[in-house]
């Protein structure tokens, strides 16, 4: 089983190695968000006791992790369309191993992208270098695992990329906006906070903020625990959906 997970992970890494330029260009948009939104809002509004760019940077890293990992998960539709999924499904390998391998592979790629953004954020002075980088990596990885698995679960029943735009508009964007990545949830209305409570990215961003900016809403261990549980749930759901009706 560990072997099989490693095999699937390794393929994700090899493909990632081939597509580095795409990864770099996918960083451009979040970087603009960080620079222009950070500067623009930072000078228009003020947060108590904190610079807005420093508040925003962990949110933008969360955004990269979210986009990269959802995309990784949903990309299984391409595997299906190009027929490669059959090669995996007919092999003596359990569906659970395939799902976990994909999730960890996608999470590794997402963490890598997040780290590049983190380096940029350091470089432009949005955050200060500290030991927080290690817990930050852990949060990126967990958040990534969660959303690759979510992407896989969504894609388990999809036969074409036609629904992709729908997913972006109705799942990814709300997930991002309601996570507290752009504005503090503490002052948001109750209904909004209620939704953000079930948004995995809320805990990812909160954890990143602990690690990189030294503050957050919940205790960091709680962020971590909730995220880990959600990752397990997402992996189980994806494995279940893949077991039934994979073709």
């Amino acid at each position: 089983m560990l072997n099989d997970i490693y095999t699937v992970w390794l393929r994700e890494m090899t493909r990632f190695g081939r597509a580095r330029s795409r990864v770099v260009s996918s960083l451009a948009m979040p970087l603009f968000w960080l620079i222009f939104l950070g500067t623009g809002f930072g000078s228009a509004f003020s947060l108590p006791g904190m610079d807005y760019t420093a508040f925003l940077a962990p949110g933008i890293i969360g955004m990269i992790v979210l986009f990269t990992s959802i995309f990784s998960g949903v990309s299984v539709i391409w595997d299906r369309q190009f027929g490669f999924l059959k090669e995996i499904l007919v092999a003596p390998v359990s569906r659970v191993s395939v799902v976990i391998g994909k999730a960890l592979g996608g999470a590794t790629v997402a963490t890598f992208s997040g780290l590049i953004m983190l380096a940029i954020a350091y470089a432009i002075g949005a955050i200060q270098p500290s030991y927080g980088i290690l817990p930050a990596m852990a949060f990126m990885f967990l958040t990534g695992t969660c959303f690759v698995a979510a992407g896989l679960a969504i894609a388990a029943r999809m036969r074409s990329m036609e629904g992709f735009q729908m997913i972006m508009s109705f799942i990814v964007m709300p997930t991002f906006f309601l996570s507290g990545a752009l504005f503090p949830l503490s002052t948001a209305p109750d209904w909004m906070r209620a939704i953000s409570n079930i948004d995995p990215l809320t805990y990812g961003v909160d954890g990143l903020r602990h690690a990189l900016a030294g503050n957050g809403m919940l205790p960091i261990w709680l962020d971590f625990t909730i995220l880990a549980v959600l990752a397990l749930v997402a992996i189980s759901l994806a494995s279940y959906l893949f077991r039934r009706g994979a073709l």
Binding site: N3, R11, A19, F82, F84, K86, I88, V90, A91
Partner: peptide, 29 residues
């Protein structure tokens, strides 16, 4: 699954990988 091999009607290779990497992946599976 252990006893059979199959060549599907429709293409089923990973185009991004090299020929050798496709085979290596298969061997690992």
């Amino acid at each position: 699954r252990k006893a059979i091999g199959i060549v599907f009607q429709d293409p089923s290779l990973d185009d991004e990988l090299t020929g050798k990497e496709n085979l290596d992946f298969h061997g690992r599976l």
